[in-house]
Amino acid sequence: MHLQLITLSGVQLDTDIYELIAPTSTGEIAVFPDHQNLVTVAVPGALAVRHNKDDGDDKLEYFAISGGVIEVTPKSIRVLVDQADHGDDIVEAESHAALERALKLREETDDQIELEQARQLIDRQTVRLKVAELRRRHRR
């Protein structure tokens, strides 16, 4: 089954996989080969990719994604999201610091625009931290 992970800054992943676990607006779904045709809304969260059938959970490849659209056919999956950060690229300490900064900003500011920015930052960093945690748990 072919997976394409497409973001505005480029195609992040273009490869054959066995299973995709994705967060959608109706809950988390797992997609295996020969899935029914499906188009669904992706929500911010952790996207997990199992490359081979015998791969254990410790070999899952994680991405922190923002909202988007997922298109599934029996032979292929196309994930269209605004941003996707690879699990390996996420530095937990940095995300923690950024999250704290954003939380502080939300507390202190009265400015609507800054508030909105803070909210976006919090969402993004929370997702990244979740991905980092998932990876840690499975690699132990």
């Binding site: 959608t24 607006s25 109706t26 029914q36 045709n37 499906l38 188009v39 669904t40 809304v41 659209v69 056919t73």
Partner: peptide, 13 residues
Amino acid sequence: NEDVLYEPDLTTL
């Protein structure tokens, strides 16, 4: 492709 499932619904998508 006629047989496509749209979730949650077409309008949202």
